[in-house]
């Protein structure tokens, strides 16, 4: 699990697969988040077309499902770039120069925080605490936690 597959892929949308996921999980107590996580894992994002299917199977309104999807930072509405850099912007990392690091990464990668490069090669995102605060600055690069980070280390990884 610590070597999670690259989250940047996007599988083609398949309503049958959404139905299958929802059917498998719908009897859990409070099934909506587990279903959304599973859909997100299966496709790399939560496609708008999945919402009415899930709503129907859980006997919820589309508005309710949309409300939940849009509330949580994790449920992206389209796939990320092929490489995903989530860089920590919280206080402990700030104290070790995270803000400056982010600025130099934006320059080096040619993409602003919160954006995906036009060739969909890389997404740079902010995250608020990865629990690696004694080895700051930290980032999650393609699902792998990296500590004592500098711009060079990030570039090395995303170019590997």
């Amino acid at each position: 699990m610590n070597k999670t597959p690259n989250p940047g892929f996007a599988a083609e949308f398949d309503p049958a697969r959404v139905r299958e996921i929802a059917l498998r999980l719908k009897d859990l107590e409070g099934p909506l988040l587990p279903i959304l996580h599973a859909v997100s894992d299966a496709f790399g994002y939560v496609d708008d077309r999945a919402l009415p299917i899930i709503a129907d199977m859980l006997n919820l309104t589309r508005a309710e499902v949309h409300g939940v999807v849009s509330f949580y930072h994790d449920f992206r509405r389209q796939a990320s770039g092929r490489r995903l850099v989530k860089i920590c912007r919280a206080e402990a990392c700030q104290s070790m120069g995270a803000m400056g690091l982010i600025a130099s990464l934006e320059k080096a990668l040619g993409v602003r925080l919160g954006e995906t490069s036009s060739d969909r090669e890389i997404t740079l995102e902010a995250v608020y605490c990865l629990g690696n605060c004694a080895l700051a600055p930290a980032a999650m690069i393609d699902g792998q936690l990296v500590g004592r980070l500098d711009a060079e280390k990030v570039m090395q990884r995303v170019r590997s």
């Binding site: 920590c88 919280a90 206080e91 402990a92 990392c93 605490c129 629990g131 690696n132 605060c133 004694a134």
Partner: peptide
């Protein structure tokens, strides 16, 4: 455990 600076739970 969302507070920056904490990692004991983890």
């Amino acid at each position: 455990e969302g507070d920056s600076g904490t990692f004991a739970d983890r």
